[in-house]
Design a protein around this nucleic acid. Sequence first.
DNA 1: ATGACGGTGTGGCACCGA
Length: 267
Amino acid sequence: MKIATWNVNSLSIRLPQVLDWLAANPVDVLCLQELKLTDDKFPLAALEQAGYPHCAVFGQKTYNGVALISQHPLSDVLRNIAGFEDEQARVVSATVQAPGGDLRVVNGYFVNGQEPGSEKFAYKMNWLQGLHRQIAAELAGPAPLVLVGDFNITADDRDTHDPQGLRETIHHTTQERQAFAALLGLGLVDAFRLFDQPEKSYSWWDYREMAFRRNKGLRIDHILVSPSLKARVKACTIDRSPRKNERPSDHAPVIVELAEPVPPHGP
DNA sequence: ATGACGGTGTGGCACCGA
């Protein structure tokens, strides 16, 4: 069972790359962020053709927009955060009826926040609080949970190419990192850090100043799993290869592989 | 300090991202 997350920075532009990537990486579920299109423009037919007939889409015009595309049926689709009013389409959740049992997948495009102290930063912190409450509630449900997406937060200094120079700037503030840590405090585990990883592993690089070639990036796309899934995580990797495409997204996909659950002993 | 790159919308640029 594989689940991936990818901020595509416009699905209209990136659809051919998404289809190519799925052909090479036939994950069970792909979570997309920054669709930048409305639901009526979502390429349902092309994705069904590619083996992904089950989609939970939450789009909007110009900005944001998230979707969960799946080989397996989906149920209990929730758009945005329950009890948190938001004009922006940033979260879609669904229960995946996977062969090894139901999995609750929450796919978020977290707020950027622009600059600490700004109105947008305040929105980011409020949004994070709303998400935290939502995740706490979801964890009380029956299915194991996976929280994926573009978090727009570096978890710690390993996740940034310039920990000193970027100290307390956006994506690096103590407040943001505390919000990330608070999610871990609910019992979630950063799947990527369950394994030895190469130093300077990042999931985003600025389009400017040849940042990708110089590996001046950030790890801000994450996959967190609920406690019951921790023992099932077999691998978690970042696939840098799509960043080498001609017109790439500025983000790379992150993939987690889960082992099948151990069936309970019979009598 | 600013802009650099790329996407969108509607436009001759502004706004946003991270």
